[in-house]
Design a protein around this nucleic acid. Structure first.
Length: 216
DNA sequence: TTCCCGGTCC
DNA sequence: GGACCCGGAA
């Protein structure tokens, strides 16, 4: 398993080169992006964040102070804007009250404990929690999303019945816990799935073709 | 104009 | 399983 994952990683690095994730100016902007990108194409999230940035500095305090209706209107392009606005503000509020707005303080401490705390928020599921941990705090928590499942399944590393935590464990149990590695690996998986391993796959020029089960 | 895509909560 | 929602492709 370790060898399969590392082979895949190196092939993807060779094809896509180093990616620069996560595109954001601050850790708190990563958090906002992590909420907004749920079930949403990144291009729409960019619009929403750009609009938001024009109105307020992207800080927990400013987000709390913004009227809910205004926030909803600004992040509208990201979809699910009512629930995302409400959940983002709730998160910002708790961050203010418990940690005086200090994201680093919230995200430091033993990884499993911090992860559990994140998962307790309404609007933070496993993918969002791990995105925040990895990309806002450089903590080695592997991010699994729909792309990851599809790629691994087609490649032949899953039977198809594994749940989210089991897929995450595949990476966590077989790779060194290095934030830089996890960061790049997830970014490469996303790029790979947008380019080749799409819903309707383009196997012809895929960098993983030679060892992919779907292609054999 | 309909259809598709993507996380989380209930 | 259904609800939440957009932009863009078909």
């Amino acid at each position: 398993m370790k060898n399969s994952l590392m082979f895949m990683y190196h092939r993807l690095v060779r094809h896509f080169g180093p990616l620069h994730w996560w595109p954001a100016d601050s850790p708190f902007e990563v958090v906002i992006g992590a909420f907004l990108t749920q079930n949403t194409a990144w291009r729409n999230v960019e619009q929403a964040i750009a609009a938001l940035k024009q109105h307020i500095p992207l800080t927990p305090a400013a987000l709390c102070a913004l009227p809910k209706e205004t926030l909803e209107a600004l992040i509208r392009p990201a979809g699910f804007f009512r629930q995302k606005a409400q959940r983002l503000q709730l998160f910002a509020q708790v961050l203010q009250e418990r940690y005086q707005g200090d994201l680093d303080a919230m995200l430091s401490g033993p990884l499993p404990r911090v992860r559990q705390e994140l998962l307790a928020f309404k609007g933070i599921g496993p993918e969002t929690a791990d995105s925040i941990l990895l990309y806002a705090a450089q903590r080695p928590s592997f991010v699994v999303d729909a792309y990851t499942r599809r790629l691994l399944q087609r490649y032949g590393l899953l039977r198809g019945i594994e749940n989210h935590e089991e897929i995450r464990a595949l990476f966590m149990d077989h790779l060194p816990h290095q934030a830089a590695l996890f960061n790049e690996f997830h970014a490469l998986v996303v790029e790979q799935c947008k380019t080749f391993c799409r819903k309707r796959p383009l196997c012809e020029s895929c960098p993983l073709q030679s060892r992919c089960a779907a292609r054999l």
